[in-house]
Design a protein around this nucleic acid. Structure first.
Length: 559
RNA sequence: GCGCCUGUAGCUCAGUGGAUAGAGCAACGGCCUCCGAAGCCGUGUGUCGGACGUUCGAUUCGUCUCAGGCGCACCA
């Protein structure tokens, strides 16, 4: 689907071509014009700064270039209401009412497809997120990552990108082992024996629960197991139980993964050996101090990294290299990982490894999901998973403020920014909560449409124009907001950031609420105008619904 | 010491080279005989942490610097 901005750019390019023909502009200078929404709506629907961008290159005063271009464009009166050249060299463009009407009609006609494109159809992208250690319940940062990852995946898919959501289960390392040991210790203590939880182990109540469950389920096998075997059995049971809990929590949150990838499977299928052999064949592996090393400094890392420790075990990095190598081998062309804030030092070495394996650095992107402070009464709540602090899990948060609010709040901020989650605000159900502000707009729209039906005013057919001859300022403002939706989605796609969408939806809601207070929609005395406005309201419904769907938030018909 | 993230209104944050830097929250005051007042309207504050540089033009890019957060293992 092609949207307004692209059409405008095309027309500017045509104008440039014409000016080249006429000899006003030198031929073949390289500049792709771009358009943007001006900050000040008085400037029009779009503005273009190409004249200033290329001024030096073509040695022409930008205002002259802008004027000439504007003159050519302005002849297209069917499309443009006005095109003017301004001060330093901006070209300000106002679309004709016909074009806005047409776009508005397109919104209703496209319905849930409005805003989608197939621009990303050649991309196969694997998005890995959450990937929390299966040693305890999901915490708040995981909740943030889940909201962001899911929304990013939805947005990418709306642009035609083939996306797979994947969760990496760290079931092979020391943390998993510690869970098994902690479970074992709890059971020993329960049996009255003096057996301490190991240093760095897990001590919260869930350990007890899962340990008991494990003891019951594995009774027969545990009976003849020595301590070492018992720990291993508990570990496997515990990890599986935790993964199951993660799945349930995430499902309640509306996040479903396409694939849960086990680190153990890398070991079992000898994929780590294969990856290291691959690196070795390419000449980036060496031995030192009884360990096997990856020469990551060859790709800009601070120091070389150990792949296989002197004790013969693989380092975590080796498994991770194998894992990401496997992602590429499964046919994905782009890898995007969302990581927690404590892993950022790790990016350079993994990227180095993927480069060493022959992958372009751009094909691997890591976004750090920054830390979250839960704020209550103006003070942060501490949330340590293992230590003494109050345990605040993702489930607690969901129960406390609900799925829609949780997701929206996490999606209001740039992923890389630290986030203060204002619990007091999130808990407000009837006042200033931004989620309800958007949802309320949607519910209001549905209510209007119902009202119209009850009054015998039918929605105009999809072929009909969206508003009357003399639209109010608020009507125009609303249309402009709606029409900006596809471009905004494209920006979110490029940035792999969903927060622009939450802002855009709030803006649409604002425009709608303003429109609503000024413009009476359902008015049997004015059937023509009513129909026109109903069409506009219906278009707003489509955009809000599409946006909320991408964010994974309900669009309620009443609330 | 090295690296990453962040410094924008009282608070929380948008703004990935453009025109008068914007929202929400908080504060105060208005608006319902009429489609949902979970709404609308009004009242105002900024050395965009600081310095230098690149540019026609910098909150945005670069270098330095100050402040806060986090990370720097043959842990995962």
């Amino acid at each position: 689907m092609k949207y307004l901005a692209a059409e405008v750019v095309q027309k500017i390019q045509n104008a440039i071509a014409q000016l080249e023909q006429e000899g006003f502009l030198p031929k073949g200078f390289i500049v792709t014009p771009e358009v943007e929404r001006p900050t000040n709506p008085d400037f029009g629907d779009f503005s273009c700064n190409y004249a200033m961008k290329c001024a030096q290159q073509i040695k022409k005063p930008p205002l002259a270039t802008a004027r000439a271009t504007a003159e050519v464009l302005a002849k297209d009166q069917d499309f443009f209401a006005s095109v003017t050249a301004i001060k330093p060299g901006f070209i300000n463009i106002k679309l004709s009412p016909r074009v806005l009407r047409e776009e508005c009609r397109k919104i209703r006609q496209s319905g849930e497809r409005y805003g989608t494109t197939d621009a990303g159809r050649s991309r196969r992208l694997l998005l890995e997120f959450v990937s929390a250690n299966p040693t305890g319940p999901l915490n708040i940062v995981s909740a943030r990552a889940a909201a962001v990852g899911d929304a990013v995946a939805n947005i990418l898919q709306s642009q035609g990108v083939e996306v797979s959501r994947e969760y990496y289960i760290n079931d092979a390392g020391r943390q998993a082992r510690l869970l098994g040991e902690s479970m074992y210790a709890r059971l020993e203590q329960q049996a009255g024996r003096d057996y301490p939880v190991p240093a760095g182990g897990y001590e919260k109540d869930y350990v007890q629960e899962v340990a008991v469950a494990s003891a019951n389920a594995l009774k027969n096998r545990l009976a003849k197991a020595v301590a070492e075997q018992a720990i291993d059995l508990h570990k496997h049971f515990g990890v599986e139980a935790m993964v199951e809990r993660h799945k349930i929590s995430l499902e309640k949150y509306g996040v479903v993964f396409d694939n849960w990838f086990s680190e153990l499977s890398l070991h079992a299928e000898k994929k780590i050996e294969a990856a290291v052999a691959d690196l070795r064949a390419r000449g980036f592996v060496f031995e030192r101090d009884n360990a096997v090393w990856f020469a990551s400094t060859r790709f800009g890392d601070d120091k070389d990294r150990v792949l296989k420790k002197a004790d013969g075990d693989w380092a975590y990095l080796a498994a991770d290299i194998a894992y990401h190598r496997d992602k590429f081998e499964r046919g994905f062309t782009e890898l995007v990982d969302l990581w927690g804030p404590d892993h950022h030092g790790y990016i350079a070495r993994l990227r180095a490894a993927l480069q060493a394996l022959g992958h372009a650095p751009e094909s691997f992107t890591v976004h750090i999901v920054q830390q979250v402070n839960l704020m209550e009464h103006g003070n942060p709540i501490s949330m340590s998973k293992r230590g003494e602090g109050r345990l605040l899990e993702m489930d607690d948060l969901l129960e406390d403020v609900g799925r829609d609010v949780t997701r929206f709040f996490f999606l209001m901020r740039a992923t890389s920014a630290h986030l203060d989650f204002d619990l007091d605000l999130a808990r407000k159900h009837s006042e200033d909560n931004p989620v309800y502000y958007v949802q309320y707009a949607y519910a209001r729209i549905c209510s209007i449409l119902k009202k119209a039906q009850a009054e015998g005013l039918a929605l105009p057919s999809l072929e009909q124009d969206a508003w009357g001859d003399q639209p109010e300022r608020e009507e125009l403002a609303l249309v402009r907001e709606l029409v900006a939706y596809p471009d905004m989605l494209e920006n979110c796609t490029r940035a792999l950031e969903p927060h622009g969408l939450t802002f855009a939806l709030r803006d649409v809601a604002t425009s709608f609420h303003r429109f609503y207070t000024i413009c009476r929609v359902v008015d049997p005395a004015e059937p023509e105008r009513s129909r026109a406005r109903l069409a506009l309201v219906d278009a707003a419904r489509v955009v809000i619904q599409n946006g909320l769907t991408l964010l994974g938030i309900q669009a309620p018909e009443s609330m």
